[in-house]
Amino acid sequence: MSAVTSASDAVFAPARRMDPSAAAIELVDVSFAYDKRPVLQGITMTVPRGKIVAIMGGSGGGKTTILRLIGGQLKPNSGNVLVAGQSVPDLEPEALYALRRRFGMLFQFGALFTDMSVFENIAFPMREHTELNEELIRDLVLMKLHAVGLRGAAAMMPTELSGGMARRVALARAIALDPMLVMYDEPFAGLDPISLGIIGQLIRRLNDALGTTSVVVTHDVYESLKIVDYMYFVSEGRIIASGTPESVRASTDPFVRQFVDGAPDGPVRFHYPAPPFRTQLLADVS
């Protein structure tokens, strides 16, 4: 029996449950459906303070939905989402906005404001939420840019940046106000191997340096294994496995194995559900 808990076990044995006071985020039995289509079913997870937790899964598995629930952009149909002890779905808009000010989020393709320079993009949250003077804003922006190694690109426009640079600028913007929580939506998608390594290292370093908590939604097992503290595997709206990187590497769970090894077929089927091929081929065309 590996240390990875799988769907057959209870997801969390009570003894293993982390101390709630140390949890930055807690999802308690959360279910969510778009219209009638269920996306998440009975998700329970804990993200401890100061740690990096990855939510892994295939495309369209409801990973991004989890981030939207944490950010309060969506409300769960049942269950509860707790961030820093506050129940997100019950927050009034004012309180929700106050909470979001302590969040940073890195969107899938950066989502930099295309009508502003790199400098202005990072200054944006400062200008919107603080009364800092221009000099202080400049110093802070240059500090953030220096942290991601792009101080030299301050005057550039987002359209002039490569994909990896845009991601780093977006990361600098996400940490502009020293958030308590940073969420990463597919930070590794569409990057070359060098940029990939840089982003991975930045996530780890910034998390430790700033003492933030990070949630990384990704399908990139290889990169995640190198940087995260804990992983959840989500498939078809359920958590089917979780564990530390070491236990995941050593896991024998078929789903985890398929994911880590990148096997085309396994618990996640290669074929979309269909009637048997033979019957369909032989069936009448009309």
């Binding site: 952009q73 979001r100 969040f103 989020m105 393709f109 989502a111 919107e128 939420h129």
Partner: peptide
């Protein structure tokens, strides 16, 4: 285009309406 490239969502997540 700002909506498509998630710039509006990013703003919302930065607590800017």
């Amino acid at each position: 285009l700002m909506k498509t490239t998630e710039q509006l969502a990013a703003m919302e997540m930065m607590a800017v309406d």
